[in-house]
């Protein structure tokens, strides 16, 4: 089998006259964790529903694990573990009962089913709640049940629609860790609004806006593409003038520009140092401040982060 696990070609979906997705083309390789980013209604969920054969695209097609979504939807579904948005589970069922159901539906029987159950319960740390009804569980645990049902048949591809939304930071961190763990052996696509998640969890980012793919890159390359790092330096004012300070830092490394940030508060002076290249100037800035007898109160590196890029890409895309 080739290493391309998901291949989407010109996927297009119209709801009535509204185009939810237009000519989305992308590939995901074995072992990648790909983050699907985009504002609400951009087409993330639509793409996922098409890949899982819940809805059919109006145009284009896709292959998942070698099977075509039109020709063999059952094979596609067999290769996928899917967690839809908002984790829809049968809340009246017990956790174990539900996982058993999910396993059976994926063709597991007897000892295979028992082994699968044991494995996912352990992987998702559900041991303490298997006897509870799903309706009684907290959101974090429900999410784990959702992941467990998606994992029980050890699918090569996992599709997770906003797996971290609505969780508190601790729960989100746990789920994130779990997904990273899972992503070592499998291909994962997950959608999210949370850019920090993508930076830590994903090896590649697809940004989608108004139904179009506007970026397909690694989080680092995306960040690099958008702009250089800047260093924000906070100094005690004492009796230095802004001009003195600028002079001190303009000789640092290969600093290109030094600007005073507008509203320095009383007793503080804030300047921004922008290097010519992508160099990390923090050490040099520190030494320059010390030798010029400046008291350094703060030093912060600010890259243009994913958030800025995301905003750029998704707001100008329509123009």
């Amino acid at each position: 089998m080739s290493d391309v696990m998901i291949e989407a070609r010109d996927l297009t979906k119209h709801y009535g006259t509204v185009a939810a997705l237009q000519n989305a083309t992308f590939r995901v390789n074995r072992g990648e964790v790909v983050g699907f980013l985009g504002p609400n209604g951009a087409g993330k969920t639509t793409t996922m529903k098409i890949l899982t054969c819940f809805i059919a695209p109006s145009g284009g097609t896709a292959r998942v694990a070698g099977a075509d979504i039109f020709e063999d939807p059952i094979a596609v579904r067999r290769a996928i573990g899917y967690l839809p948005e908002n984790t829809p589970l049968y809340t009246e069922m017990l956790v174990l009962e539900y996982l058993e159901f999910a396993g059976k539906m994926r063709g597991l029987r007897g000892s295979e089913l028992q082994a699968g159950l044991r494995k996912v319960v352990e992987e998702t740390s559900l041991g303490d709640v298997v006897g509870k009804s799903i309706g009684e569980l907290s959101k974090g645990f429900r999410q784990r049940v959702g992941l467990a049902q998606a994992l029980i048949h050890e699918p090569p591809v996992l599709i997770l629609d906003e797996p971290m939304s609505g969780l508190d930071p601790n729960q989100a961190a746990e789920i994130r860790e779990l997904i990273r763990e899972i992503g070592r052996e499998r291909t994962v696509i997950l959608s999210t609004h949370n850019l920090a998640e993508v930076q830590v969890t994903c090896s590649r980012v697809l940004i989608i806006s108004e139904g179009r793919l506007v970026a397909d890159d690694t989080p680092d390359d995306l960040a690099a593409r958008a702009g250089k790092p800047r260093f924000v330096v906070t100094l005690r004012k004492d009796d230095h003038s802004a001009a003195d300070v600028r002079a001190v830092f303009s000789s640092v490394g290969n600093a290109q520009t030094v600007t005073e940030v507008a509203a320095s508060s009383a007793g503080e002076l804030i300047v921004e140092v922008v290097p010519k290249g992508n160099d990390d100037l923090r050490a040099d800035i520190f030494r320059a401040a010390v030798s010029a007898d400046l008291v350094l109160l703060g030093l912060e590196q600010r890259g243009e982060n994913l958030e800025d890029i995301f905003r750029q890409l998704t707001t100008k895309a329509g123009a």
């Binding site: 819940f54 899917y82 994926r106 063709g107």
Partner: peptide, 14 residues
């Protein structure tokens, strides 16, 4: 209404 149909249908069933 609850969306469970999506999970059901995307299992390998017709």
């Amino acid at each position: 209404r609850t969306g469970t149909i999506e999970l059901l249908i995307t299992m390998p069933v017709t």
